Amino acid sequence: MTLTFEVDPAVDRSLTDGVLALWADVSNAGGAVGFVPPVTPDAIRPALLRHLTGMVQGTHRLLVGRDEEGEVAATAFYAFNDHPLMTHWVWLYTVMVHPKHQGRGYGRDLMAAVEHTARTAPGFGEIEAIRLGVRGGTGVDAFYAKAGYKEVGRIPDALRVAPGDDRDEILMLLPLR
């Protein structure tokens, strides 16, 4: 089975509840997506609302992967740069695959869909690269490296996940041209 991907799905209660549940489940399983466990959907809601507001303003785009039951199983948010010297690349945020689907190749499928969308979807214009930040110490940088992303920078101890547990932020880039 595979995921079905959609760019900029209709934002309704089903989508927002699905993304919130996914985000909480990924975070509570130890995923490095902006929160540390334990976290609830209500605690995540303000971050999702910032992404959704960006979608309305045209600064963010959403890629959703749905499983065979139509449930939100994967996401990635793109954020366009408004700085005139940086409009040729996008940030990638909140890249997630539900823990129950991990180990099936869905992460690889999601990253292929992320790249395909950035290369071909209307509104992406002349995007030449995708950039993302990764929490050090998780090993996820190796996953992104397999998807073609290269480490281009590292900020030591930039992320404090708990008192005494500071992690590097690893900056990674996928050139598209």
Rank of each mutant, 00 (worst) to 15 (best):
P122Q: 15
L110D: 04
M86V: 07
G123M: 11
V134R: 03
T87V: 13
L92V: 15
R108W: 09
E68I: 08
V134L: 06
G137R: 03
D67Y: 07
A121C: 06
T117Q: 06
F80W: 09
R104D: 05
G107S: 11
R131G: 00
P122V: 12
G107V: 00
F80T: 06
A118L: 09
G137A: 08
A129S: 07
A129W: 00
V90I: 14
E126I: 02
R104Y: 04
Y93R: 15
T75I: 09
A79K: 11
G70I: 07
V72F: 08
V114K: 11
F80R: 12
V90C: 15
E128S: 06
R66P: 02
V97I: 14
M96T: 02
E69R: 14
H88P: 04
F77S: 02
I127D: 00
A118S: 12
A113E: 02
G103P: 03
A76M: 12
H101D: 08
T138R: 08
I127K: 01
R119C: 08
T94I: 07
K100I: 12
F77V: 03
G133F: 00
Q102N: 13
E69K: 12
L85S: 12
D109P: 01
H83W: 11
R131W: 00
E115H: 07
G70V: 08
E126Q: 06
L110H: 05
I130A: 01
Y93V: 07
F80Y: 09
G136K: 01
P122N: 14
M86I: 05
P122Y: 06
I130P: 00
D67K: 10
R135E: 03
V72K: 02
D82A: 15
V114R: 09
G103C: 10
G137S: 07
G133N: 07
L92I: 15
R119Q: 11
Y78A: 07
H88T: 14
T117K: 03
V90L: 15
T117N: 07
A76P: 01
Q102G: 10
H116K: 14
R131S: 02
I130D: 00
G136V: 01
V72N: 02
V90N: 10
F77I: 04
W91A: 13
V95H: 07
R66Q: 13
R66C: 09
H88F: 11
